[in-house]
């Protein structure tokens, strides 16, 4: 999933300050899973902003609505019926959601309420970790299911560096060295020979070759 965190409230208030009729738009997918922008968080932020406005004696209209997926056109289009009542939308979607909404409703300012963080997993309740950078050419097979491009601080494909000690990364002693994990996993199924191979320079054009990437599947199109 895509993870995100809410921006500091002061930053949000500064961005919405010029507007008097604001729609808070939540997203019930990834950002709900990471407790940043689902229905619950959207209602909380709306209430908080209304409290703040009341304290200032300001008469601001703040409504909230949550859609299933802010990054999918079909889920955004129904907003057409209500969006004209507002002079700004504060989106609790990820960066993709914010931009998808902005693309469709070009007349109205769409303001991000979240800082989008990374592609990650829910490791535990309230604990999310990054484990994919979306490089476009998955190499997890070679590394026993541990991605060094994401989990090694130096993105080494032929690691580890000299800073791995007691299985921990030199950058943060709390963080396991990705190469230690790779070594352990490959040892466990007798596949250490995969580490003898020299992995050549990565083809980064799959990630950032010509601007934003797209996937087109004609069989999926109407």
């Amino acid at each position: 999933m895509i993870t995100a965190e809410q921006k500091p409230i002061d930053e949000i208030r500064e961005m919405i300050e010029p507007y008097e009729k604001i729609l808070l738009l939540g997203c019930d997918s990834c950002v709900a899973e990471c407790a940043a922008g689902g229905e619950k968080e959207t209602a909380m932020l709306a209430s908080t902003l209304r409290i703040a406005a009341k304290m200032e004696g300001r008469d601001v209209l703040i409504h909230e609505k949550t859609v299933d997926r802010q990054c999918v056109k079909d889920f955004i289009l129904p907003l057409d019926d209500i969006i004209n009542q507002y002079d700004a939308v504060l989106s609790l979607g990820c960066g993709a959601g914010v931009q998808a909404v902005a693309e469709i409703f070009s007349e109205i300012p769409i303001i991000p309420a979240l800082n989008t963080k990374f592609i990650g997993e829910t490791r535990d309740q309230g604990y999310w970790v990054e484990n994919c950078i979306g490089c476009g050419d998955c190499m997890l097979y070679y590394f026993g299911g541990v991605c060094p491009l994401t989990r090694c601080a130096k993105n080494l494909l032929n690691g580890p560096c000299g800073g791995s000690k007691d299985g921990k990364c030199e950058v943060d002693p709390e963080v396991p060295c990705a190469w230690q994990l790779i070594f352990e996993r490959l040892s466990a199924f007798n596949a250490l020979e995969r580490l003898e191979k020299i992995y050549p320079p990565k083809d980064w054009s799959e990630k950032q070759g010509r601007g934003p990437r797209k996937i087109i599947r004609e069989d999926q199109q109407l």
Binding site: P8, I9, D10, R13, M44, T48, I51, A52, M55
Partner: peptide
């Protein structure tokens, strides 16, 4: 923490 962040 939330209410303190808006000065309550």
């Amino acid at each position: 923490e939330i209410i303190e962040s808006i000065g309550l």
